[in-house]
Structure formats: C-alpha cells, structure tokens
Design a protein around this nucleic acid. Sequence first.
DNA 1: CAGCATCCCGTACGATACTG
DNA 2: CAGTATCGTACGGGATGCTG
Lengths: 137, 137
Amino acid sequence: MQVSTQVRAAQGDQMAGDVVHLEDLLDDGRLSAACPTRVVLDHVTSKWGVLLLLALSEGSQRWSELRRTVEGISEKMLAQTLRTLEVDGLVERTVAATIPPRVDYSLTPLGRELVAHLLPLMGWISANAEEMLAGRA
Amino acid sequence: MQVSTQVRAAQGDQMAGDVVHLEDLLDDGRLSAACPTRVVLDHVTSKWGVLLLLALSEGSQRWSELRRTVEGISEKMLAQTLRTLEVDGLVERTVAATIPPRVDYSLTPLGRELVAHLLPLMGWISANAEEMLAGRA
DNA sequence: CAGCATCCCGTACGATACTG
DNA sequence: CAGTATCGTACGGGATGCTG
C-alpha cells in the first residue's frame, strides 16, 4: 500500500486540512494485504495499543502508573505492547539507574503525531458508544 | 467511561475544532475497563473492522466487492464483522430480492461520522508506516 | 520497582463444505 | 451470489512465580 505524496504533504507537524480519500490508501484498487500499513495498524489497534498511547498522551508515565491507568492490562501485555510501540518508534523508554529502578515511558514526536489523530477518534467513539450499544441503528 | 458534555458538543455532524484531551475520556482518572467505549473500540479496531469501514468510505459495495477490496478476509470474518458493525449501527445492509440475490452494504450516517475520523488517522499511518518499520526508534 | 519466563486456556480466525 | 455450518488450530492473552 503506497500513499500519494499528496497525503504525505497533508501530514505536517500540525494537523492540516486533512482531506484524505480512500483512493490515496489503495494499492491497485484494494486494501492490500502485504503492506506496512496493515502491520502498523495491527500494532496500534491491538487490544491495548490505543489505550496505552492514550494514557501517555498527556505526559510520561511510569510502569506502575500505566498499570493503574490502563485498567485491566496484565503485566505481560503491558510489557509486550510497550515493546512493539517502542520498536515502532512511537514510545520512548527512559531508565533511571537508581535503586529501586525507575522507568518512564513517554511518546516520541512520532507518537505525539499519531495520538493527535487518535484523540478526536476516541472522543467521538466515547461520545457515541452508549448510543451505539443501546440497540439498533 | 463517561464523557463530558463538552466533548459531545465538540462532535457535531461536521468535525469541529477537535481539541480533545485525555481527561475527557477518563473515568476517575483511569481508562476504565467496564465502559461502552472499550466495547465499541474493540469492534472498530478488530482485525477487519477498520478495513471494512474504510472500504465502504466511498460508497456502498456488494458482498463480493468487499471480499475483493479487503484483501485476505475470509467469508466467515466478512460476515461476522459486517454483522457486528451493522448491530452497532455503523453499516447498513440492503437486500434486493432478485435472483441471483444482491446485497449491498453501505455506511450509515453514524458510520460516515466515524470514518471521517478514521481517514486522517489511516492517512497518517499509511504515510509513516514504512519509516516506522524501517528500524530504530 | 520493573520486569522476564513459563504454563495454560479461550477464542478469534481460517479452510472447507454445504445451502437458499 | 450471498451467505451459513462445522471443524481445527494458532496465537493472544491471563495467572503465577522468579530475578536484578
């Protein structure tokens, strides 16, 4: 899945007018299976990915803080998800060599860009969730 | 996870200035486990949810078209995902009682609102995916 | 405190076959 | 064409226990 330079141009440090169309995301008219976008999408939309990114949206948090903020996450998934987000360059890990050890997690500039797009989405979902689950359309 | 009326106000038919902060999404300082938002989020961010919504973003598509557009999806998951999206009121199913049968899927107004938030996100991911997977943080 | 390692299970998902 | 039904499996993910 390639993306037109047009779209790339629309994504500056700030969120621009953001008129993105499906065609820009299509590869040969399809949502191609073998494209990096799918992989990243899977990371971000993994069960805990969005939640963690959100939790970090307002500043760095420690391991234990994240555990509490993101209710229900297990240590295993916390570690695992944080690592993939770190490898993807969305989250930064800062270790303080003290005793007891202290580790802080924060968003990278890239991560902050992503979250900027995530927040409106989450806001909308949050605002409409109850209505959606209430029943029929 | 309740949402402040403030956020709700920010989400009209059109996308507004969209300044959403984490606090607006928090319940008692946490990303609460037992909230409708989590459920909807799981539906939308399910493996095929985003892809299907995107595929429908530019107009209705038939069952078979969707299969082709969303590369790699199985019939089972196509049916399953479409049904949960339909129940959530995001997708509408239109059956033409002809032979052979013809079924069209399209976004509801609600679905179109959601996709409006999804497109910029996908645009960004698409634009940055390769870079992210390329390597280092 | 901040984590790996291990075990184990549920279910999400895919492949295949059949139907209106 | 547009699905359901059935089956089997891989992997996501939780529980527990150990380490620097």
